[in-house]
Simulated assay, not measured.
Amino acid sequence: MNNSQITSLKEFQTTGYFLQENFISQTECDSLLQLIADYRQTNSVPKIYRNVKPIPLSYFVIDGKRIQSQIPEVQKLYETVNQVINNFTNKQLFPLQDIQVGCNINITEKGGTYRWHYDRNAITALLYLNKVDGGEIQLYPNYRITLPEAKFSRFQSVIDRVQQLSFFRQIFGKQIMIKPQPGLLLVMAGDKCLHSVRPVTEEKERINIVMAYDLPNANFVVKNQLNTYLYSSEKFDSKDPNYS
């Protein structure tokens, strides 16, 4: 594991994100990919599909409850990255109390995508385990207009929907495109950076680990519906809970 390339705190505060290549080695990536493959041999992995416009949700997910009980190596990595982020930001951030959400493995097959969204939590780390064609993350750093003390209000959801519109993004945003690479770590202010995943264009699946952190006792009013929406393959008749 390599921590030497992490950028300055000032730069992160300005840009809202940082990238570190080779955070873990190819050998470590291969080991994690094998653990995930072994898990899939004996466990079903739910496919999530929500027909959201313009970019659907379409991916498989191993949630934090399964990771904690059956893939402890990934859980340990989640805790290690927490310390790296705390050392870098000089803050005391913690894994989310909601175990299901805190650490996930996302598996995206050919054609799979992930909708435009902001995260519910303050800091999100994405660790890529393999290289694929397509599957780039589209990122608008520090883009969100946030209402003080009203992060989950109806008015905030209206602002969020407007900011996601293509013409609005083209005029007011600056897009960063990040290609999947083994060992690449992306850390971002997930609740301020608008992001989505472009379609995977080859047969090989895109596999990455998603790790979420926040201040202690962070509260998310959309928790229950959003968890069903993002981590369960059961039918969901309502709109996206983030923006309903």
Rank of each mutant, 00 (worst) to 15 (best):
L126E: 00
L129S: 03
L215D: 12
L126N: 07
E203W: 06
K151P: 00
G134N: 10
N130A: 05
Q97V: 11
K151D: 13
L96H: 04
K151M: 11
Y118T: 08
Y213R: 02
L147W: 07
E205F: 10
G173I: 02
Y143R: 06
G135T: 03
R144A: 14
I209F: 01
N219G: 13
L129G: 01
L194M: 12
P182W: 00
E203N: 15
L127I: 04
F168S: 09
T201D: 07
K204C: 11
I178R: 05
I99N: 05
K131S: 11
R169W: 02
G190E: 01
F168N: 08
T146R: 15
K151L: 12
F220T: 13
I176W: 02
Q97W: 08
K192P: 04
I137S: 11
C103A: 14
L96S: 04
R154Y: 04
I99L: 10
I209R: 00
N142R: 11
L194E: 04
G135R: 01
R206C: 03
C193Y: 05
Q138R: 12
K151T: 09
N217E: 13
L194K: 06
G102P: 09
Y140V: 04
I107K: 10
K223L: 15
Q164W: 01
R198W: 00
A150G: 04
